[in-house]
């Protein structure tokens, strides 16, 4: 069985840029106005992936001890991005960092402890990146969802507080809906996986020449890893966000009060 592993050189990458050129032309002709963004996307994707490629080559090439550092950098970047998306939550970056780190540590910890995947940089870093990017989406959905739901249901929340409910109790309906919103996309994706879109890990393995059944087994592990990571991230983000949106005296924070 021959795969594409090693078959794509930089010449092939350059040739594939023809397709971006086509997109740019379409954008120009139809007045979509995205030519600039497309060029930025082209340059950034090339530079970012090239850098990542060199870093991974280095780490895989006998520097496995850097795995943890690589994951830490990824968590930091993910937390930064999430914090910016959910900036209505005070201390959003800290909340996101904890939620995402817990999600990654818990899920990777389980698959490593159970020996499901080997404790090697080649396994841990790509799996970690998938868990992190999913956890990031879940955390930001939960954080912005909590804020917006508490703002729109302020009267109900304060009615509950007035009945001497704790902040957590008063926020429970908002929390439930936000966790649902944060977890639903991956659940829906998992249900239809393979029917239309082949997910990334499986696609990669098949292109690289692996037997399809090997590829789907890895993909199943990845999907379950993502489901778990997503749930952890949503839960932790929800619990921490409640604390940021209420005072210690069970009051909504000022921006949410009026």
């Amino acid at each position: 069985m021959t795969g594409l592993s090693g078959a794509v050189g930089f010449a092939e990458v350059a040739l594939s840029m023809v397709l971006v050129a086509v997109a740019v032309v379409i954008s120009r002709v139809r007045g979509v106005g995205l030519e600039g963004d497309m060029t930025v996307a082209l340059v950034r994707s090339f530079a970012q992936l090239l850098a990542v490629g060199y870093v991974l080559e280095f780490v895989f090439d006998g520097h496995g001890g850097l795995t943890f550092a690589a994951l830490a950098v990824m968590v930091g970047t993910a937390a930064w991005t999430t914090g910016r998306r959910a900036k209505s939550v005070p201390g959003a970056r800290g909340v996101a960092a904890v939620a995402i780190a817990v999600a990654a540590a818990a899920t990777l910890g389980v698959v490593l402890a159970l020996g499901i995947v080997p404790a090697e940089a080649r396994a841990v870093i790509p799996l970690g990146s998938m868990v992190l990017s999913n956890a990031m989406v879940a955390a930001s959905l939960v954080m912005t969802g909590m804020h917006d739901r508490l703002a729109t249901s302020r009267r109900e929340v304060e009615a509950r507080l007035s009945l001497a409910c704790t902040a957590r109790e008063a926020a429970l309906p908002a929390m439930r809906e936000s966790l649902r919103a944060g977890m639903l996309p991956i659940v829906e994706n998992t249900k239809v996986v393979g029917l239309v879109a082949f997910p990334g890990a499986m696609t990669g393995m098949i292109l690289a020449g692996a037997p399809p059944l090997d590829a789907i087994r890895l993909q199943l592990v990845v999907m379950y890893l993502l489901l778990g990571g997503n749930a952890f991230a949503a839960l932790v983000a929800g619990e921490l966000t409640v604390r940021r949106l209420f005072t210690a005296e069970h009051q909504l924070i000022r921006p949410l009060r009026r």
Binding site: R155, E158, A159, L161, S162, L163, A164, T166, H250
Partner: peptide, 11 residues
């Protein structure tokens, strides 16, 4: 919470 149990405010 004790305060709010003693003082019920209906909005």
């Amino acid at each position: 919470l004790e305060l709010r149990r003693r003082v019920q405010v209906v909005s």
